[in-house]
Amino acid sequence: MHNWQPLHAFLIRRSTAVCLQELQVWNDPQTQLDADREYLTLAAIVGFRFLHVQHSTVLYNHFSSSQMILSDSNLLRVERLKQMFLRFQYHATMQPLGEITEQHWFLLKQNWDLWKLAPVTFEQHGEEVFFLQHSQKELGMPLNLVQARIVSALHKSESACTLEDHARQIVRMFWKQIVQQSGVEGLNVAAELSRWVGLTHPEISDSDSRQLAQASRQSTSLLQAKIDAIPLSAPLFIEQQLAVLYVLEKLRAAGMLNQFSDSQSQINQSMPAR
């Protein structure tokens, strides 16, 4: 899921690099941006394994507004991701049966169009029973509490974007809401965030633990400011993002999301509650 490795903080064996070069994994000049994501994802798909060196860090500077990553349009980025993931799927089909799991295929085949919540009404039929009704079509679907929470967060989104981007933004939104709650500090934030997205057994990495323990000693306002400063692509709360992504795909498949072009991505829609 996105840049699951720290940016520019990796080493590759020469023999591995040679093998990947023979597969033309480095797809220059076709992939002008996100080349690191493409390179390392393909390395994983074709069977290479990764070791994690604890306590390694990297400082990443956005030093100029002319950087390609900052000047790239959203539409070009989405089109590039579509082509990149088609390449991922091709290489995945070449692997031995069972090497690519069902969860892998869900990510490899994820949708890369721009989406926003359709005009819907939101009904509550019990403490944890909800129903989502399309306002313009004869479509509806039941929701549990976790799904209803994600739909409510999606409604607050001001722009249409990919499901992956929505998932990251929703997790950030939940994270900021959780730190406002009294009595939720430090490592409890990760556990509470997992509960919000329906994960019963959260896995907290050592790096997450250190960052959250440090955050527990900071004021809520300072912590929220730091949350906003973290790039959306940072490899934090990946399991929680995946849980949200599953719900978003379910909404898309049920017709509860509207597809947009890049020029339409700022259109606002309402979701009246009943």
Rank of each mutant, 00 (worst) to 15 (best):
T101E: 10
L107A: 10
Y90N: 01
T101G: 03
I100F: 07
F85D: 00
L86T: 06
Y90C: 00
M84L: 03
N111I: 02
Q89I: 04
L81P: 02
N111K: 13
K82M: 05
R80Q: 11
M84G: 01
T101C: 05
W105Q: 01
Q83R: 15
K82L: 04
M94S: 11
Q83F: 09
F88P: 01
F88Q: 01
H104G: 07
Q83G: 14
Q89E: 14
W112P: 05
W105E: 02
K82H: 07
T93G: 11
T93E: 15
L86Y: 11
K109M: 10
T101Q: 07
T101M: 08
P96L: 08
N111L: 11
T101L: 10
L86H: 14
M84V: 01
Q89T: 04
F85E: 02
T101S: 15
I100T: 06
K82W: 04
Q103K: 13
Q103H: 10
T101R: 09
Q89D: 04
N111Q: 15
A92I: 02
F106D: 02
G98L: 07
N111A: 13
A92F: 00
M94K: 15
F88N: 02
T93K: 14
G98R: 08
Q110T: 11
T101K: 12
L97F: 04
H91T: 05
Q83S: 14
I100W: 08
F88S: 00
E102C: 06
L108A: 11
P96F: 05
F106Y: 12
H91I: 06
W112N: 10
L108D: 03
Q89F: 02
M84W: 02
L97S: 10
V78S: 13
F85V: 01
T93M: 15
